[in-house]
Amino acid sequence: MVALYQVMAIYHFGRRGVCLYGGGYVEQERKTKNWKLKMLEQVVFYIFGAVLVTSAGMVVTVRNPVHAALFLVLAFFCSAAIWLLLQAEFLAIVLVLVYVGAVMVLFLFVVMMLNINLAPLREGFAGFLPVGLFVAALMLTAMGLIVSSDHVLPGLPPAAAQPPIDAANTELLGKTLFTEYLYPFEIAGAILLVAIIAAISLTMRKPAAQRTPKPEKQVVVKRDTRVRLVNMESASPPEKGDSGGLSQRSQGGKQGDNSD
């Protein structure tokens, strides 16, 4: 449903040439004399919008989690295409590279590795359906009323300065990021650091009771710690003081170095 509203909102603002989701509100005076081009743009928008809404719907309705993840990939891809239509090419490429390329692949790995039994999760589904439908209908009407109300449009902000036609979106974004948004950008860096610390501290440290091999101890193992040479005399006991020199007795004869 969120996807549906995104499409509605993008269409609504996009129709007037205002890009909400791109690099701010770049009002584009689309002086397209060629109405055919304009119509083509609309057709492309509707195709991608329709595929986006359908695949977003499939994400929550299909039974197979792998299929759901793949539909999510499709949804991301279509949003990227819509962004491209709004001339936010950097965001479009980042969405494909980061979400489709990295995050969703990870998602698929996790889904395939965890053998989740979905049957118990679905048990109470019908019981919650009426409440869910009611809330969904309520949200749908409320949001629909607002997006389609006349009050929305006069409130749109004034046009920003038109960027030069040959300006590269990525370059402009980079410049803004390191001047105007320097402070938030650095905070985002700190957030990533916290994510790394959290991930490592949650996965690295094992409880003391858990028995795992310790490679750093295994590689420094010497023959003496594993093998004990015992000088055996078959007939008579050896002379005193002689045995210490010949036999290599490592005390205790450790065997279980890798199990502490």
Binding site: I187, I191, V194, P207
Partner: peptide
């Protein structure tokens, strides 16, 4: 003093807190 900073500060705080709650793995 901007909505972006509010949000980023909030995320920095919350992420650390989630990890702190989860830290006692036993």
């Amino acid at each position: 003093y901007s909505m972006l900073t509010v949000y980023l500060g909030l995320e920095l705080m919350s992420l650390s807190l989630y990890a702190m709650v989860a830290m006692h793995k036993g």
